[in-house]
């Protein structure tokens, strides 16, 4: 697979480390979240067949985290954005 990096252009997926579902960005506040919320965040996944937004870390490159929209049936990548931008757009400071 080739991942079109928003800053560096097309890069081999082997340069990246895979983390998982992009919803992992939205970690609940550990001081206020319930046990159920923390459990569901840490252990449960949607794991869809089809379009999947997921986190890839460019370890062998610029060390940026990306949110890649990829189809789990075909491996087609349709959209790539910086995880930083996704987090900021949802109201996070960084």
């Amino acid at each position: 697979m080739i991942i079109p990096h928003p800053l560096l252009g097309p890069r081999d997926a082997a340069e990246f480390v895979y983390k998982g579902d992009a919803s992992l960005i939205n970690r609940p506040d550990g001081m206020t979240a319930s046990d159920d919320e923390m459990h569901d965040y840490a252990y449960l996944r949607d794991n869809p067949a089809g379009e999947h937004r997921e986190l890839w870390y460019h370890e062998q490159g610029d060390r940026s985290w990306l949110v890649v929209t990829r189809n789990t049936m075909t491996h087609d990548i349709t959209y790539v954005e910086l995880a930083r931008d996704v987090a900021r757009a949802s109201g996070r400071s960084r």
């Binding site: 997926a13 895979y18 998982g20 579902d21 990829r70 789990t72 491996h75």
Partner: peptide
């Protein structure tokens, strides 16, 4: 391979 997939085929690395 290490990424979510339902395709019964992998990649070359």
């Amino acid at each position: 391979d290490g990424y979510n997939t339902y395709a019964q085929r992998g990649n070359l690395p």
